[in-house]
């Protein structure tokens, strides 16, 4: 039998997000967001602002709801049967769940990079050109070529693949594949990029390359990253949000969260007492 009395985190109450969840210059702002999978509630009353051209990191133990929350931001949860969301999520003060809001357009504005690199079974070129072709962003072949090259350069992949643009994207190494996925996302010029544990399937060297790329991209894009690694959150993000069992416990400057956490649960987590 586990002595529950000694597991203090079960007793700690979470009524309100502590720290500084709200900021002035918000790109995204969410209020009272609840998410359900069928009858099971996955997110409880999440309130947070995500700042423009910033990197915000979302951390927390597995199953805490951080990925679910991230997928609300570009309505990827729409594709999961039985998932429903209440509350307000606003992008540039527009409700993204409003019935006139178009998920296709929203996802073009809010790009996403996944945990496992998932290049399409197409050539490297076609992977990057995919979004542009879908949305009709390039009017001719020359423009498209230019766009592909530019995106690959921005993703730091061009040098490695410039001679093999027409080889399948699935033939690249894991780190290259992930940069290809980033390249294909920035090819449609989004405003926000969501990254769901983008380096968890990669080795440390590839991780370092991607992290550098994130910092570089944040000059132009707003980035929200879910990560398992507190070191990564500390290295790349300006702000950090800590999730615990569906609750948003604490949001603050990354520095503050890691050096002077306000909430007991956050402290337990970052000091490695569980998670």
């Amino acid at each position: 039998m586990i002595d529950i009395e000694k597991r203090e985190e079960f007793d700690i109450e979470i009524d309100k997000t502590v720290g500084k969840p709200f900021i002035d210059d918000a790109k995204f702002s969410t209020r009272n967001v609840d998410v359900f999978y069928d009858d099971k509630q996955a997110i409880f009353d999440a309130n947070i602002d995500i700042g423009k051209n910033q990197i915000i990191a979302m951390i927390g133990p597995s199953g805490c709801g951080k990925s679910t929350f991230l997928r609300c931001l570009n309505r990827m949860n729409d594709t999961i049967q039985g998932c429903h969301i209440s509350g307000d999520i606003k992008l540039d003060n527009e409700d993204i769940y409003h019935k006139h809001q178009d998920p296709v357009l929203l996802r073009a504005r809010v790009g996403m990079v996944f945990q496992k690199p998932n290049p399409f079974p197409k050539s490297i070129y076609d992977n990057v050109a995919y979004g542009a072709k879908l949305h009709g962003l390039a009017s001719n072949k020359i423009e498209l070529d230019e766009l592909v090259e530019k995106s690959l350069i921005r993703a730091g992949l061009f040098k490695e693949v410039k001679d093999s643009l027409h080889k399948p994207g699935t033939g690249l190494s894991g780190g290259q594949q992930q940069r290809l996925c980033i390249a294909r996302t920035i090819a449609i010029d989004p405003e926000v990029i969501l990254m769901d544990e983008p380096t968890s399937a990669l080795d440390p060297i590839a991780t370092a390359v991607i992290e550098e790329l994130m910092i570089d991209l944040s000059k132009k894009y707003t980035i929200a990253i879910v990560t398992h690694s507190m070191q990564q959150a500390a290295r790349v993000s300006q702000r950090t949000a800590y999730f615990h069992m569906g609750h948003l416990v604490e949001v603050n400057d990354t520095n503050t969260v890691f050096t002077n956490p306000e909430h007991q649960l956050t402290e337990n987590y970052i000091t490695g007492r569980f998670g």
Binding site: D102, V104, L105, A108, R109, L134, H135, G136, L137, I188, D189, P190, E191
Partner: peptide, 17 residues
């Protein structure tokens, strides 16, 4: 994203749907 891109996408949406 520039407003321009959004406009381009919006223009084609009806047809795509």
């Amino acid at each position: 994203m520039t407003g321009n891109t959004t406009e381009i996408i919006k223009l084609k949406l009806a047809k795509r749907y």
